[in-house]
Design a binder for these strands. Sequence first.
RNA 1: GCGGAAGUAGCUCAACUGGUUAGAGCACUCGCCUGUCACGUGAGAGGUUGCGGGUUCAAGUCCCGUCUUCCGCG
Length: 416
Amino acid sequence: MSLKFTIVKKLDGTLGRAGSIQTPHGTIETPAFITVGTKATVKSLNSDQIKEIGIQCVLANTYHLYLQPGDELVKRAGGLNKFMSWKGPTMTDSGGFQVFSLGVAFGKGITKMTKGKELLLPEARPDDEGLPKLVTIDHDGVMFRSHLDGSAHYFTPERSMEIQHNLGADIIFAFDECTSPTESIHYQSEALDRTHRWAKKSLERHLELSKQNSEQSLKGGLQAPALFGIVQGGRHENLRKESAQFLADLKVNGVGFDGFGIGGSFEKEDMGSAVRWANEILPEDKPRHLLGIGEPEDLFQGVENGVDTFDCVAPTRNGRTGTVYTVTGKKHIGNAEFIDKFAAIDPDCGCYTCKNYTCAYINHLFRGKEMLAGTLASIHNLYFVTHLVSGMRKAILEGNFVRYKEDFFNTYKRLS
RNA sequence: GCGGAAGUAGCUCAACUGGUUAGAGCACUCGCCUGUCACGUGAGAGGUUGCGGGUUCAAGUCCCGUCUUCCGCG
């Protein structure tokens, strides 16, 4: 496999560690925050801006790129890196999250992270009646109805691997079923069996394709990616542990996964323990990615519990919709208090936005619905989160992680 | 000066022949967003219906007066 993971230093008394992941397109120093670029673009930013922020890696999406412009086209373009003109490491998600986001979550306001356990009660679940259904799950795969034009597309683990190999990211993920936090333990268990069955099929097909790829790469084709298996199991300790063990042990012709993703949806307070259950079992010498997690408090929890990389839409989506991160918490930059605040979002921030623009100006851009608004806020938010996590790495290496965390939460308050 | 039309939320406009608590869009205020269906979305505040009389059980709506604006004619 084309990936090498090295642990440089561990965080005493926890599962945390600082290390590096070497990929064909460069090294990711971990812990690291990875930026989401679903459709081969970090929304509103170009490659130079992504690089200047200090972003190490971009994660794109299989389902979206398969629908548009098509994985074959991306392959013809020379792969994801060339297509989007990004020289650093890349990942692609398998489409497993869309089983959830376009499935049971579609149009119902259910999110990956629930707040308040009442949502987990069956009687609080929204009714299915009259709502559009874009996903049908069966034993072998998932039928998606395109959110773009309604056309039907059947995804299997094998198909997801083929698409991801065409896209050509450095790290790809097994096709899984991301379940809703509102599902019963019975359903979670059933879904987990599916995810495990699909994990094996993903690995098998991946190895076949890798063999073909390596023959092609001698002739100048794309290098074979590394494959991460995904741990599921919802909020349940036994399922999480079972899943971690299954994936850790899974081998095809003596070859296992190159790393692991931890997926699923959580009740806010349960996330840390769900991650710990998995990471206590997953092999220490393989990298672990926590899928779709990204608020500052969650990132600290993830790192302490042994997560190496994260991806999350929060910095970019929040930025585009007017919420910015500051050392005292999140703020709505479009609010009236910023109309005439002629100072940077954070005077001590080193990002391009804070070095060049005032709150008043960004407030004006949001009120005027100017495109630059989302760009400037995204730059700031990505810088904030990226450097928060790289700061954790530095703190682990220097042995002052606890103080780093305390200093952060001394001023940072959650909005809600 | 004469004739006509129109005055309803900050703005643009609704409200069948009089009939509950005068609505909507935008703007405004405040939320929300965690492997992107997303430059998305929810809620709230905001009106003595130009002003003054009258008819009626009941008036944004009908009548009279008055003010303002627009159009046409002098």
